[in-house]
């Protein structure tokens, strides 16, 4: 199952990409996806702890189940305005 990942700010700098397609391993939900990403990019650990997650442009909790084609974005503490 593939999902689209969007990275911004600190996440974008650590991953080095704005957007990637990600094949989910055994994970079915956001929490599992975050764990998979930390395994590949260990420097995400700190920022992953205090970031929120959006699925298809809506804030969601980490237990949310992912579906093929979902757009998942990681939202570190915001600084707009």
């Amino acid at each position: 199952m593939k999902v689209k990942l969007r990275f911004f700010a600190s996440w974008r700098e650590i991953v080095g990409e704005e957007e990637i397609e990600w094949s989910l391993g055994d994970s079915q939900n956001v929490e599992g996806l975050v764990t998979e990403l930390i395994a590949k990019y260990p420097r995400l650990i700190g920022t992953a702890l205090n970031s929120l997650v959006m699925v298809n442009r809506r804030y969601t909790d980490r237990q949310a189940t992912l579906r093929s084609g979902d757009e998942v974005a990681f939202i570190p503490p915001v600084g707009g305005g």
Binding site: V78, G79, G80, G81
Partner: peptide, 14 residues
Amino acid sequence: AIDTLKATAPIWKK
């Protein structure tokens, strides 16, 4: 509007 935007809009500044 400004309080809610600052708290929730996915916008960042360096």
